[in-house]
């Protein structure tokens, strides 16, 4: 078991390191001139300054080092939680992120909780209801929810709940009311994704022999659904928890921008607009870290929740729910 845990932790660290390296490579190796990008971000023209000043600036941003030197500085900094200085805001990136990450975690945490409850309820109903039209409608609903662009949902909510009915504020961070519509916007997508996986899982579970046995014993349909099917069907959905959380984090970019909330999603949007490379690198690394950590926790918890796997001599085969969802 120790070997299993150690292996998983090392694998997670490896993926995180590779994700950091990939992002670094994109940001620093692609054809654009990093010096020009950084000068533009700081609001300076490359040809308006003397060679001496240029050299000084290069030194200040660490661009006079070789690419490996820069990579090493960034990597060792990131390991210690230091992502360098923002180019546009003249503040350490760490401070910028610390001031905002709480709001984003609150938003994505609420969204994930809501979407788990909604997704499970929807899948439960869709597989329990017998009346065919309703069943078909509930089964198709997740595909519909996953098709709507998030800006569409957000704008509709603002238009109707905020402007027409005046129920919730259309923007800002203050009070729980400001959280309702952003959470709803993210949950439409994430609960649809979860429900799709869960419906499939319920369908598979309900075909198992032990379900037939339970029914044959004389248990009612609802008792079998609640006591026998639910737990077994919900378990595989855990494996896409990392995905759902990753999806909520990326959704926060659009959602925080639309609802003008303070958070790292909007920080990322502003950083890309001003080509603030260190901030972009930091946000991508943090998002990848969240994704990798959640997956690691799920990997480690899964054998405890499903003893069938732990018994298999420590070699864990997590059910195939490797599903990737590109950001919407």
């Amino acid at each position: 078991m120790t070997r299993y845990i150690l292996g998983r932790v090392l694998q997670a660290l490896g993926v995180l390191w590779a994700a950091f390296t990939l992002t670094f490579a994109i940001l620093y190796l692609l054809p654009s001139d990093p010096m020009e990008l950084q000068l533009a971000a700081a609001g300076l023209q490359a040809d308006g300054i003397s060679p001496q000043q240029l050299a000084d600036l290069k030194h200040q941003y660490g661009l006079d080092q070789s690419i490996w030197g820069q990579y090493w500085t960034r990597l060792s900094g990131a390991v210690h939680g230091d992502f360098g200085m923002s180019l546009t805001q003249n503040l350490p990136v760490r401070d910028l992120i610390q001031a905002r990450i709480g709001q984003t975690l609150l938003l994505t945490g609420c969204a994930c909780t809501v979407s788990m409850v909604l997704g499970l309820a929807l899948a439960y109903l869709a597989t329990f209801v017998r009346w065919n039209p309703l069943r078909l409608f509930l089964t198709r609903l997740p595909a519909l929810g996953a098709s709507f662009p998030q800006f569409f949902i957000a704008l509709m909510l603002i238009q109707f709940l905020s402007f027409k009915l005046g129920l919730f504020p259309a923007m800002g961070n203050t009070g729980w009311k400001s959280l309702v519509m952003p959470v709803a916007t993210i949950s439409v997508l994430t609960s649809s994704v979860l429900a799709q996986v869960l419906i499939k899982s319920f369908d598979d579970t309900l075909r198992q022999p032990y379900i037939v046995t339970a029914r044959a014993k004389g248990l009612s349909r609802s008792a079998v659904h609640l006591k026998h099917a639910l737990r077994n069907a919900a378990l595989p959905a855990m494996t896409i928890l990392g995905l759902v959380i990753g999806l909520s984090v990326t959704s926060s970019i659009i959602v925080e921008t639309i609802y003008t909330r303070v958070g790292i999603g909007r920080l990322a949007q502003e950083a890309v607009l001003s080509q603030d490379v260190p901030v972009v690198l930091a946000v991508v690394t943090i998002a990848a870290a969240i994704f990798v950590t959640v997956n690691l926790i799920v990997d480690l918890l899964y054998p405890l929740l499903d003893p069938r796997i732990a018994r298999n001599r420590g070699r864990v085969r997590v059910p195939a729910a490797q599903i990737e969802v590109s950001a919407a």
């Binding site: 940001l27 692609l30 990848a288 950001a327």
Partner: peptide, 21 residues
């Protein structure tokens, strides 16, 4: 491919847009 999947799609796209303009 696993590494590409670990960086959420929109963030990967944002990094590329930052670098390419």
């Amino acid at each position: 491919v696993d590494v590409l999947l670990a960086v959420p799609g929109l963030l990967l796209a944002l990094s590329i847009v930052t670098a390419l303009g």
